[in-house]
């Protein structure tokens, strides 16, 4: 256990800390003493992140848990959540990986602007994102009215709408991670392949993609997790109807209106499933060697 030495001023601790870090980097063994200026905030951060979770566990109605979980609405919402989050992730992979590649490998004017635009869904309140989607893809939206009149397709209030809303909010997570992986990847492999006569497409799918696979998986996991928890854009764009567009976060929100205990149970289910999926993926893929 790491205990900070009492009475040492922050100044001296700081200098010792940097010395310790240097040593740790050299021999990477357990010898380096961890500086408490980092450990204390780290512990605060951990408590801050975990305490609300503990709150949920403490207040959970354990005695009625089984009967509440057996309600068909819970399973319906959970299944819809898992299916839509997965489809949204697939959509993000199909569109987002190429976008990340273009941003990282193609030099074109306005690239910085495009990169900034990609992150817009990150800063946009999701509800605003949902309204924006309605304005474009809604029945009277710029593209939506044409979809409606030409093909009879309306996207709001459909499961497809849920997938689109989730993909809109989650795609930046994937694009940013994949672009970061591409920038960190060693260009010499791609150059070697190119000098051996490989086309850019061949280089991409035979060299680049295997090289950045961990980054892609990490991005996909983040993207999936964000899509799974998506609330604002979904309820605004796709509405809320059990079995069709009511995902777990929507079910949680509405349960909160009348039955806070039911909302806690639903949240626990969502948490358990996502932790299970994320932990299994992390162990296999995300941890860098």
């Amino acid at each position: 256990m790491l205990t900070p030495r009492p009475g040492s001023s922050s100044g001296s601790a700081g200098s010792k800390g940097s010395a310790g870090r240097g040593r740790a980097r050299r021999d990477s063994g357990p010898a380096g003493r961890v500086p408490w200026v980092l450990v204390v905030p780290a512990l605060v951060a951990l408590v801050f992140l975990v305490a609300p979770l503990a709150g949920l566990l403490v207040r959970a109605p354990w005695s009625t848990l089984a009967t509440r979980l057996a309600e068909p609405q819970v399973l319906t919402a959970l299944r819809l959540s898992l299916v839509t989050a997965t489809l949204a992730t697939v959509l993000c992979l199909l569109l987002g990986v190429p976008l990340a590649w273009v941003l990282a490998r193609v030099d074109f004017p306005g690239r910085r602007l495009v990169r900034a635009l990609v992150t817009v869904p990150l800063v946009l309140p999701p509800v605003v994102g949902g309204v924006a989607l309605l304005l474009v893809l809604g029945r009277r939206g710029l593209v939506g009215q044409w979809l409606d009149s030409a093909f009879g397709i309306t996207l709001p209030f459909t499961t497809t709408g849920v997938v689109l809303a989730e993909a809109f909010v989650a795609m930046p997570f994937l694009v940013i991670s994949v672009e970061g992986a591409l920038r960190a990847a060693d260009l010499r492999f791609e150059e070697a392949a190119a000098t051996l006569g490989a086309s850019r497409w061949t280089v991409f799918h035979r060299v680049t993609l295997p090289l950045i696979a961990p980054g892609v998986v990490a991005g996909a996991v983040l993207c999936w997790a964000r899509a799974l928890g998506e609330f604002g854009a979904t309820i605004t764009f796709a509405g809320n109807f059990p079995g069709r567009t009511q995902t777990m976060p929507l079910a949680v929100y509405l349960a909160l209106e009348t039955e806070p205990e039911a909302a806690i149970v639903l949240s626990l289910v969502l948490l358990a499933v996502s932790i299970l999926v994320l932990a299994s993926l992390r162990d296999r893929w995300v941890t860098s060697p």
Partner: peptide, 16 residues
């Protein structure tokens, strides 16, 4: 087609 979370959200769907 949808069961909205509050009355203003319901109204927005009509306005749009």
């Amino acid at each position: 087609v949808t069961l909205e979370q509050d009355v203003k959200a319901t109204l927005t769907k009509v306005e749009l």
